[in-house]
C-alpha cells in the first residue's frame, strides 16, 4: 500500500527502474537516511543550486520579466551567465509562437494510480501543437539513446496527451506533441523527440505495467536491489543495504543530475515539485 496522496512521476519511476529497493525506501516508506550521495559534497550542492537558479531565471523570463534586469541578477556567476546567454540565443524557442506555461504540472490516472509530470515549460500553439521544453544543465551532452531510455522521455508526452488538457483548445493528438531537451553543454543542438500514436500506445502499456508491478509489491520484505552496484556509490541508502561505506566521486559520472538527484525536491505547497536538470 503506497502512502496516501502518493503520485507516480518520472523521477520515482526512474528510481524503481534503477533500483526497486531505493524506490521502496525513498517513496514507499519515505525513509529519510542522511548518507552522503556524492563527493565533493559542496561542489555537488553548488551544481544543484546553480541548476535551480537557471530554471528560476527562465521561468522569470517566460513570465515576461525584462532580460536585461535578469542578466544583472546572474552577473556574479560566470557559468550561470554563460548558460543564460546561450538560452537567449535559443531561437528554436524564442521564435515559437504560442502561450507559455512555465513550471506547469499535469496528472493522469493510469493503472489505478496517479501519474504526474512537472514541466519546465510548455509552449501551446493553440489548435496546432504543444512543445515540451526541459532544461538540462549537464556539463557533458548525453547521447540521444540515453535520453530515449529515460522515463522522462516517456512520461512527459504521455501525460500531456492523456490528461485531456484543454490547454491546446481541444483534444490533443500525439502527433501534435514534441519534446525538446536543451542541454547546457550543447546549447545549439537541442535533442528533439516527436511523439506519435504508436509511441503513445507503447508508453501506455509500459507505464501501466510498471505501475501495476509496483502496486502488487507489499511492504513485508525488502524489495530487490539493483544488480549494478556502481549505482549504490551514489545512493544515500548504501549503508542500510550493506553496499559500501564511502560515496562515489562526482567526476566519475557524466550526468549527475539525473543519476543522483532524483530525491532533490522543492515542494512549496505540498504538491509534487521535482527539479530534474
Amino acid at each position: 500500500m503506497l502512502p496516501a496522496n502518493f503520485q507516480f512521476s518520472q523521477s520515482n519511476l526512474q528510481d524503481y527502474v534503477d533500483c526497486p529497493r531505493r524506490f521502496q525506501l525513498r517513496h514507499f516508506q519515505a525513509q529519510a537516511w542522511p548518507g552522503v550521495q556524492a563527493e565533493p559534497v559542496l561542489e555537488y550542492e553548488r551544481h544543484l543550486e546553480r541548476g535551480a537558479r537557471f530554471h528560476r531565471l527562465i521561468e522569470r523570463h517566460q513570465l515576461g520579466m525584462d532580460s536585461a534586469m535578469l542578466a544583472a541578477t546572474v552577473a556574479g556567476d560566470a557559468e550561470l551567465s554563460a548558460w543564460w546567454r546561450d538560452y537567449l540565443h535559443f531561437d528554436y524557442l524564442h521564435d515559437l509562437p504560442g502561450r507559455r506555461y512555465p513550471e506547469f504540472s499535469l496528472s493522469v490516472e493510469i493503472a489505478g494510480a496517479r501519474l504526474v509530470a512537472m514541466y519546465d515549460l510548455l509552449v501551446v500553439v493553440s489548435g496546432e501543437r504543444v512543445v515540451i521544453f526541459d532544461w538540462k544543465t549537464y556539463h557533458r551532452e548525453p547521447s540521444r539513446q540515453w535520453f530515449l531510455a529515460r522515463l522522462q522521455t516517456r512520461v512527459y508526452p504521455f501525460v500531456l496527451v492523456s490528461s485531456g488538457t484543454g490547454l491546446s483548445g481541444g483534444n490533443l493528438l500525439p502527433e501534435q506533441v514534441s519534446m525538446v531537451y536543451w542541454v547546457a553543454a550543447a546549447p545549439l543542438e537541442p535533442v528533439v523527440f516527436d511523439y506519435n500514436s504508436k509511441r503513445l500506445a507503447v508508453d501506455c502499456d509500459y507505464l501501466s505495467g510498471l505501475i501495476r508491478e509496483i502496486l502488487t509489491l507489499g511492504d513485508g520484505s525488502a524489495w530487490s536491489m539493483t544488480a549494478d552496484e556502481s549505482r549504490c556509490r551514489f545512493c544515500e541508502y548504501r549503508s542500510l543495504c550493506d553496499r559500501g561505506v564511502y560515496p562515489g566521486l562526482l567526476e566519475n559520472i557524466s550526468n549527475i543530475d539525473d543519476n543522483i538527484a532524483g530525491s532533490v525536491g522543492f515542494s512549496v505547497l505540498g504538491g509534487v515539485g521535482e527539479v530534474g536538470f
Binding site: N5, S107, E109, V116, G164, V268, G271
Partner: peptide, 26 residues
C-alpha cells in the same frame, strides 16, 4: 491525488504564506 480524480493540470492548494513565498521566489 486520488486515482478517480479527473486528469489535467494540478489544482493549487495553498496557504497565504506559501503563496507569498512562491511569489517572492519567482
Amino acid at each position: 491525488t486520488a486515482p478517480d480524480w479527473p486528469g489535467g493540470a494540478q489544482i493549487d492548494v495553498v496557504t497565504l504564506g506559501g503563496l507569498a513565498r512562491r511569489g517572492l521566489e519567482t
